[in-house]
C-alpha cells in the first residue's frame, strides 16, 4: 500500500509515521506536523477538543490523497489525524509525503494540509480560560 490514512484517539507517533513513509525509491520526504498553539487572537488557549465524522473523514482524506497522486509524482502519502482533548504542544495532525524529488513532496504535502482544512469533516473547539468556541462556525 502506498497510502496510510488513520484517525487516532491516542497521541500520534511521529517516528512511526516517518518509518512508514521512508523508502529506498524516495529522494525526499516532506512531513507536516500540526501542533496546538497556546494563543488565538491574543487569548490564551487552555486546550483543543477535536471531533470527527470518522467514516466520512477517512473517505475525504482518501480523495485528497488520490488527488495528490494524480497531480504530483509522489510515491507514498500518510495522513494521521487525532481526535479527543489535546493540550498545548500536542499534535492534531501529521502529513507525510515521499517522492523521488523534493518539489513534488513539498507541493503535495502543502496541498494535502490546505485541502484537509477545507473539506474533511473534523471539527475543533478552542477552550479558553473564559469560554469556548467551535472554530470557523460563525462568520
Amino acid at each position: 500500500m502506498n497510502t496510510q490514512i488513520e484517525i487516532h484517539t491516542e497521541p500520534l507517533n511521529i517516528q512511526s509515521c516517518i518509518d512508514w513513509i521512508m523508502s529506498p525509491h524516495s529522494g525526499g520526504i516532506d512531513v507536516f506536523i500540526g501542533t496546538v498553539r497556546d494563543m488565538t487572537k491574543g487569548k490564551t488557549v487552555v486546550r483543543l477538543e477535536f471531533e470527527a465524522y470518522n467514516q466520512m473523514a477517512i473517505k475525504e482524506m482518501e480523495k485528497i490523497s488520490q488527488q495528490a497522486f494524480d497531480n504530483w509524482p509522489v510515491q507514498k502519502v500518510l495522513i494521521h489525524h487525532r481526535t479527543g482533548v489535546l493540550a498545548v504542544g500536542e499534535i492534531p495532525v501529521i502529513i507525510a509525503v515521499s517522492a523521488a524529488h523534493r518539489a513534488a513532496a513539498f507541493e503535495a504535502c502543502r496541498y494535502i494540509i490546505d485541502t484537509l482544512k477545507e473539506t474533511v469533516p473534523i471539527w475543533k473547539k478552542e477552550v479558553f480560560e473564559d469560554g469556548e468556541v467551535w472554530v470557523a462556525a460563525h462568520p
Binding site: 470527527a52 489525524h81 494540509i113 474533511v120 470557523a136
Partner: peptide, 10 residues
C-alpha cells in the same frame, strides 16, 4: 444523513 458545519480540522 449528517449535518456538516464549517470544518476546522488540522
Amino acid at each position: 444523513i449528517a449535518i456538516i458545519p464549517p470544518v476546522s480540522g488540522g
